[in-house]
Amino acid sequence: MVRKLILFLEMHQPRRLKYGVLNKLCDLRSDEINEVGISSIIFNDEVNKEILNRVADRSYVPTRVNEGFG
């Protein structure tokens, strides 16, 4: 009889882009180009976090099973 079951779940979520990102990138000066700066211009991290938390709450958190088995 199986006494323990381990589930490995992997979540794939796209990173959402900010509106008008192409124009913002075209307006950059050469001294403003770095990984952190470009990342903050391209990605909408507030929306990404909100959606990721919503997906986790609806999908992954409910998979926690009663740990009283066995």
Score class of each variant (00 low, 15 high):
2 V>K: 06
2 V>W: 01
7 L>F: 05
7 L>V: 10
9 L>D: 13
9 L>C: 15
11 M>P: 04
11 M>W: 06
12 H>P: 11
12 H>N: 15
12 H>D: 15
13 Q>P: 04
14 P>S: 08
15 R>L: 15
16 R>V: 12
17 L>W: 10
21 V>M: 02
21 V>Q: 01
21 V>H: 03
21 V>I: 03
23 N>D: 08
23 N>W: 03
23 N>M: 05
23 N>A: 09
24 K>G: 06
24 K>T: 08
25 L>C: 04
25 L>D: 02
26 C>E: 11
27 D>P: 00
27 D>Y: 04
28 L>F: 06
29 R>W: 01
30 S>H: 00
31 D>P: 00
32 E>F: 01
33 I>T: 04
33 I>S: 05
35 E>N: 01
37 G>L: 06
37 G>Y: 07
39 S>N: 08
40 S>Q: 13
40 S>H: 09
41 I>D: 02
41 I>V: 08
41 I>K: 07
42 I>W: 12
43 F>V: 03
44 N>S: 08
45 D>I: 11
46 E>N: 06
47 V>W: 12
48 N>H: 06
49 K>D: 14
52 L>C: 05
52 L>P: 01
52 L>I: 07
52 L>K: 07
54 R>C: 11
54 R>K: 14
54 R>M: 13
55 V>D: 12
56 A>W: 12
57 D>Q: 08
57 D>M: 05
60 Y>S: 14
63 T>M: 10
64 R>Q: 13
64 R>P: 06
64 R>T: 08
65 V>Q: 09
69 F>Y: 11
70 G>N: 02
70 G>Y: 02
